[in-house]
């Protein structure tokens, strides 16, 4: 997913950001499905949507749902204008799948909170204005889901330090973020103190069910399809299977969006979409790489080979980010009453 602040601003000018945000805060009040349709087109076209992505998908809806009136007025217009970019502060060095064990801690002080700790694997941290972070405000890691809260952290505040981490493809899209005595004014606490776990769980349903959980590898499929049309080969069956999966996943994703739009928090269904979706996204480059090299006499387009190899390299991350496969299946099992 490419990053272009200019593209994001142009999206906003078209009225294509903040579609589920109320008009009085600069949004379109057009609903989740208009957003779904637009996002799907953008992803299928490989548009550079990364800058506004997190703010538009989950930070904006989160602030609209849990934020105070003053907070909505402060943050939402910038999100809708494509000028405020957000990142997600969840994972820490010792809190990955076990998210409830976060140790970053905000201590109460006069007029606000003093934050110390560290986040990691934060996508776009160096290029975002704000982070919505899950931190401990009371108790200890042993208290698990109790005592966690969410704050909007201004990343330009004193005491915030960000270091990029290079990924295996050589890109630096994620970072480590350090907090040393960072002052968080009282009115940057989102929702209720201590309700952070419940809020983050609701937020993750947005993160896990969208079309991006299906379409990460779509550019490889489209490239392969173009080559198959130009150079007929006998891969109809493999192509058809990909389509059967893609069509089914899209229906699943839409059904979860319908529940989100109805104000529900379909946590289990979102986990199902994410696990099935990322499995598909991971299988696609594996299957296509094999098909591209099935006949050594044929030379696939160089750019298609490059994209396929790049996506195959990045694909293992799909079932890590936003909740690992094992965590998701555990959540489904809990939803079924097994634990």
């Amino acid at each position: 997913m490419g990053f272009s602040a200019e593209f994001s601003r142009k999206m906003a000018e078209k009225g294509w950001l903040g579609l589920s945000i109320e008009k009085q805060y600069g949004g379109q009040e057009a609903g989740f499905f208009r957003r779904y349709v637009i996002v799907e087109e953008l992803l299928a076209a490989g548009a550079p949507v990364s800058a506004h992505w997190i703010a538009d998908r989950q930070s904006g809806p989160l602030i609209q749902r849990y934020g105070s009136e003053e907070q909505k007025q402060r943050y939402l217009p910038g999100i809708c204008a494509g000028q405020s970019f957000f990142c997600i502060g969840m994972s820490e060095p010792n809190a990955g799948s076990d998210l409830a064990s976060v140790r970053s801690r905000a201590e109460k002080t006069v007029g606000g909170w003093l934050l110390n700790g560290q986040k990691i694997w934060t996508t776009n941290a160096t290029r975002s204005h704000y982070m919505i972070a899950l931190v401990r405000t009371s108790g200890s890691a042993a208290d698990r889901h109790q005592g966690l809260s969410q704050f909007v952290i201004d990343l330009s505040a004193p005491g915030v330090e960000i270091r990029e981490i290079k990924d295996l493809n050589g890109d630096a899209h994620f970072s480590e973020v350090f907090f040393k005595d960072v002052f968080l004014p009282d009115d940057t606490l989102i929702g209720d103190e201590g309700a952070g776990w419940e809020q983050v769980t609701a937020e993750l349903a947005f993160e896990r069910s969208g079309p991006e959980r299906i379409l990460s590898s779509i550019v490889v499929l489209e490239g392969w399809l173009n080559w198959l049309r130009a150079t007929p080969q006998s891969h109809d069956e493999k192509l058809g299977r990909a389509i059967a999966h893609l069509a089914t996943l899209r229906e699943l994703s839409i059904s979860v969006t319908a529940r989100l739009a109805a104000g529900e928090s379909p946590i289990v269904q979102a986990a199902i979409v994410k696990d099935l979706g990322t499995s598909f996204e991971q299988e696609l480059p594996v299957m296509i790489a094999d098909a591209l090299t099935a006949d050594p006499r044929l030379q696939p387009p160089r750019s298609l080979m490059e994209t396929t190899v790049f996506v195959a390299g990045a694909a293992p991350s799909y079932s890590l980010r936003g909740g690992t496969r094992e965590i998701l299946r555990g959540m489904i099992a809990r939803g079924l009453g097994l634990r």
Binding site: I272, E326, R329, G330, A333
Partner: peptide, 13 residues
Amino acid sequence: QQQIGEMAEHCYA
């Protein structure tokens, strides 16, 4: 739990 979680995914799909 992991197996039944996977089973539920296929049923839903």
